[in-house]
Simulated assay, not measured.
Amino acid sequence: MRRRSLTAAVTVLVLVPVVATLTGLIGVSGFMYTPQLAGFLVVCAVVAAVTVPAAMMLGRGIANDVMWLHEAHDAERAAEASRRELVTWISHDLRTPLAGIRAMSEALTDGVVSDPGDVAEYARRIRGETVRLSGMVDDLFQLSRITSGALTLTLAAVPLHEVVSEAVAVEAVAAARKGVRVEAARDCRWPVVRGSDPELARVVRNLLSNAIRHTPPAGSVVVAAGVSGDRGWLRVDDACGGIPDAELDRVFDVAFRGEGARTPGDGSHGGLGLAIARGLVTAHSGEIEARNHGPGCRFEVRLPLA
Rank of each mutant, 00 (worst) to 15 (best):
V137K: 09
M136H: 03
R194A: 12
D138R: 15
P159Y: 08
G111N: 11
P159V: 08
I146C: 12
G135H: 11
V180Y: 08
T154P: 00
P191T: 00
V113T: 15
L143N: 01
S134W: 04
P159H: 07
A156I: 00
H161W: 10
R194W: 08
T154A: 12
V131Y: 01
A150K: 14
T147I: 10
L133Y: 00
D138L: 10
V203C: 04
P159L: 07
G179W: 10
T154G: 06
E183H: 13
T109Y: 14
E199L: 01
E171N: 13
A176H: 14
G195M: 01
R132M: 07
R189Y: 03
E129K: 14
A172E: 14
S165D: 15
V113C: 11
L160D: 04
V203S: 02
L160H: 07
A174E: 12
V137C: 04
R132W: 11
E162N: 05
V131G: 01
S114A: 12
R145V: 03
W190E: 00
G135T: 10
Y122W: 05
V163C: 07
D118E: 15
C188D: 14
S196V: 01
D110M: 09
G149C: 09
A107I: 03
G179T: 09
T152M: 12
L200M: 01
V192C: 06
D139A: 15
V113L: 15
E129A: 14
A201D: 01
L160K: 05
S144L: 12
A167C: 02
V193T: 05
P116E: 02
V164L: 02
R125D: 09
W190A: 04
R202C: 04
V168S: 09
L200N: 03
E121M: 00
S196A: 10
E162Y: 00
P159F: 08
P191L: 00
